[in-house]
Amino acid sequence: MLKDITLGQYFPGNSVIHRLDPRTKLIITILYIAALFTASGPFAYLLVMCYMMIQVALSKIKPGIILKGLRPLVILITVTAILNMFYTPGRILVQIWVLTLTYEGIVRSVFMILRIVFLVIGSFLLTYTTSPLSLTDGLERLMGPLKRIKFPAHELSMMMSTALRFIPTLIEETDKIMSAQRARGANFDTGNFLRRAKALLPVLVPLFISAFRRADDLAVAMESRCYIGGKGRTRLTELRLTAIDFIWCAIALALLAAVIIMRVLGL
C-alpha cells in the first residue's frame, strides 16, 4: 500500500494545465476548493464537478492514476457515507434495529462523498501537474511581499520542496527497513493499536536516523554547489504570467461567483 501513495508525485507533461504558472494553479485551486465547499444544491455541485472534470481532461493525466490516488481514502469515504446515511434526521425509509436510514441521509452522504472525492482530485491535480520545485517557487513568489516583514518565504519554500522531493525516497527506505525487520521475525500486522505502535519502533528509529543523515549529506552537497540562501538566486524557468493564466483565474472566479449565486437561489 505504501507504494500507492502518489502524494508529492509529479507527472511531467505539456498540457494546458501543466503550462500554467504555478501561482495561477495555486490560486485557482483555492478558489475551486472554496467553490466546492460553498456549493449546496445539486446544480452547483454539478457545475463544480464539470469544471474539475474538464480540468482533469485537459491535463491529460490518466484517470487510472487519479483513481489510484483515491484508493487510500476508501475507508474514510465509507465511514462518512455510513455516518451520514444513518444519523441524519428526516423522512425514514428503512429501520434496521437501531439504525435509521433516511432519505435526507442518503442525499447528504452522496454530497459528502462527492465533496471529499472532488476535494482530493482537485488537490492532487495540483501536485500531479506541477513539479514540487515550481509549486514551492510559486508559493515563494506569492509570499514575496511578506519578505518585507522578514518572513522567511524562501527558506520555507526550500524546506517544502526538499520534503516533497524526499517523500518517494523515504517511502522506499521504509519498505526496505520493514522487510529487513520482518526477516528477523518482526510483525507489523497483528495485535491491538498499542502493540502495533510499539512494533513500529524498529522501523521508525532507523528511518529517523537515516533522515537526519540524509539531511546532513544534502546540506553539504548544496553548499558545495554554492547555495547561500535565497539572496541573488535566479531560476531556470522564470515564472511568467500569460493571457491563459488570467483567463483561468477569471474562470475560477466566475465559478465561485456562480456557486455563491446558486446557493442564494437555492440551486
Binding site: Y10, S131, L133, R165, T169, R214, D217, L218, A221
Partner: peptide, 11 residues
C-alpha cells in the same frame, strides 16, 4: 540519493 535536490533532473 543525498545529492539530489529537485524532483526533476534538469531542475
Amino acid at each position: 540519493d543525498n545529492q539530489i535536490v529537485a524532483s526533476v533532473v534538469e531542475e
